[in-house]
């Protein structure tokens, strides 16, 4: 019974992560997007924390803490500041088409189920569900990066993608802590670099719309 309950909660949390991912696809305003990103990280922290509890792996609590501290609080606040200072908080992005994107997202979830469930037939059921759902989170993050034009929302897509990777890693038992921490740091550094670049781009070109950058690339001169 306890195993069944543990499995159900893990399943629910991972499923919520997918749900939040799809919700993120829907957001076309930057502040709302950042809020959903924070929620995404919060759900991830809960999922990882639950994994730490059922696997009795105390080091996963650190991972959950990193997810909660950095990804759910620090990064969204920083992004919010950035958006405010760039003065793009009112910007409504031109997305491909929200309905189509969401349909594509649903198709991606189905695809990752179709791929992962037969492959991991002999694996531990908790890990199995986790990995299938994590793959859909990764794919939706990538879809987000492909369909958005604004650099800030690409950053959000990238971060949600990383959350998916994190979920898969914690679902598989025996992931060393040092890997976790180094991944967390690399994300932080990537975030800082992207942030600096955003301001530099803005300084130079007066916009963070990546479409505008293409015209300035060296090859096109």
């Amino acid at each position: 019974m306890t195993h069944g309950f543990a499995f159900d909660v893990a399943h629910m949390l991972a499923g919520s992560l997918v749900l939040v991912s799809i919700a993120m696809l829907y957001q076309d305003r930057l502040y709302a997007l950042i809020n959903v990103l924070a929620l995404h990280a919060l759900v991830l922290a809960a999922a990882v924390g639950w994994q730490a509890y059922i696997q009795q792996a105390p080091h996963l609590y650190i991972t959950a803490g990193i997810a909660l501290g950095f990804k759910a609080i620090v990064i969204p606040m920083a992004l919010r500041r950035m958006v405010f200072r760039l003065g793009i908080h009112r910007e409504i992005e031109t997305v491909v088409s929200i309905g189509l994107t969401m349909l594509a997202g649903i198709a991606l979830v189905a695809l990752s189920m179709m791929v992962m469930l037969p492959v991991t037939a002999h694996a531990d059921p908790v890990a199995r569900e986790d990995i299938a759902l994590a793959l859909s989170v990764v794919l939706i993050g990538l879809l987000m990066m492909v369909t958005r034009r604004n650099a800030v929302s690409q950053v959000a897509g990238f971060l949600s993608l990383e959350n998916g990777v994190n979920l898969a890693a914690t679902g598989a038992q025996g992931m060393p802590l040092v890997v976790e921490i180094s991944v967390a740091f690399s994300i932080l550094i990537a975030f800082i670099v992207i942030g600096i670049f955003l301001f530099r781009i803005r300084e130079r070109f007066d916009t963070v719309d990546l479409q505008a950058l293409d015209a300035f690339r060296g090859e096109r001169q």
Partner: peptide, 9 residues
Amino acid sequence: QFLTIRRYL
């Protein structure tokens, strides 16, 4: 050779 970043992604 000359596509946008989004296209490459």
